[in-house]
């Protein structure tokens, strides 16, 4: 579901075109900060047409995201969360992979620091994704930008980037598509949590292994070709070793950070 739309290489690809915008409708863009010329070409508006377009475009994908939602709901109820608690988490966190990992970490007593830190680390990618939208969002008010970004998930970010790049200038597309994700994500969580509460012994249905399977599916989607090999091997090795040596679930963060550090070191432009 995570469509592989590459963020625009704006700073490099468009540098040589930034002076071409004589008909630039947004003079405020014309500071010394090099921005891609495309976003400035069409004025970015924020209205119902964008919300509707985003919602309708994203609805079929949001239904698919519901698959994760059902799975999350089942796992959450197996972990001891009530339907209301699971639904609340989906409604206010709205970040699938991190929620599923949080449920994996859930225990009695709840390891609050580990959970919050891990959620933060997993969702750090949203910072990069949000930053990629800045060229189009800079003319919008902070209320609209922050409000829209709350509803950003992997799927609708990719759709939004595609829509903005095509020059439609619909600044509310992210909000509309995010609302579609939000509605189906919360609903499917409720469904999953209800089903999970009715399921008895998880091993009987293979549900005990479902979380691992969800991550296998996530990994299959996140696979980015050859460039994934080294960081993934580093993460795998560090996580397996750390899980044997370090108490608790710190191996997840250690594996992820080790991969990021190695990537920073071996980066060659």
């Amino acid at each position: 579901m995570e469509a592989n739309v590459e963020p625009t290489d704006s700073s490099e690809a468009n540098d040589d075109r930034q002076v071409s915008g004589t008909d630039d409708p947004q003079p405020s863009d014309a500071n010394d900060d090099p921005q891609p010329s495309e976003p400035g070409r069409t004025p970015v508006t924020f209205g119902w047409d964008g919300v509707c377009a985003g919602f309708l475009t994203c609805a079929p994908i949001a239904i698919g995201v519901g698959g994760y939602g059902v799975a999350f709901g089942v796992l959450a109820s197996q972990a001891g969360l009530s339907v209301a608690e699971a639904a609340l988490m989906s409604a206010v966190v709205l970040a699938g992979a991190s929620q599923i990992v949080a449920i994996e970490l859930w225990a009695d007593p709840i390891p609050v620091a580990t959970i919050v830190l891990t959620v933060f680390a997993i969702n750090l990618r949203y910072s990069l994704m949000g930053a990629a939208l800045q060229p189009w969002f800079q003319s919008l008010s902070w209320k609209k930008v922050y409000g829209s970004l709350f509803f950003m998930a992997d799927e609708n970010w990719a759709l939004t980037l595609r829509d903005l790049q095509s020059g439609n200038g619909r600044g509310a597309f992210l909000l509309g598509s995010g609302l579609a994700i939000w509605v189906f994500w919360v609903l499917s969580t409720v469904v999953g949590a209800l089903v999970g509460g009715a399921v008895g012994d998880p091993t009987e249905y293979g549900i005990d292994f479902m979380l691992a399977l969800i991550f296998v599916a996530l990994a299959a989607e996140l696979w980015d070709g050859r460039s994934s090999i080294v960081p993934w091997l580093v993460a795998l090795a560090v996580a397996v070793v750390a899980s044997a040596l370090v108490p608790g679930q710190w191996y997840i963060l250690l594996g992820g950070l080790a991969a990021a550090v190695v990537e920073v070191i071996r980066y060659d432009g």
Binding site: L124, F215, P231, S243, L253, G255, A259, Y267
Partner: peptide, 26 residues
Amino acid sequence: DRLEAGLSVLPGAIVIAVLGPELAAG
């Protein structure tokens, strides 16, 4: 760009870090 490259591998790496020990135990 260097830091961005590091951040961009985080999601996949974290998923693998969760998976590794779990699969190893299977």
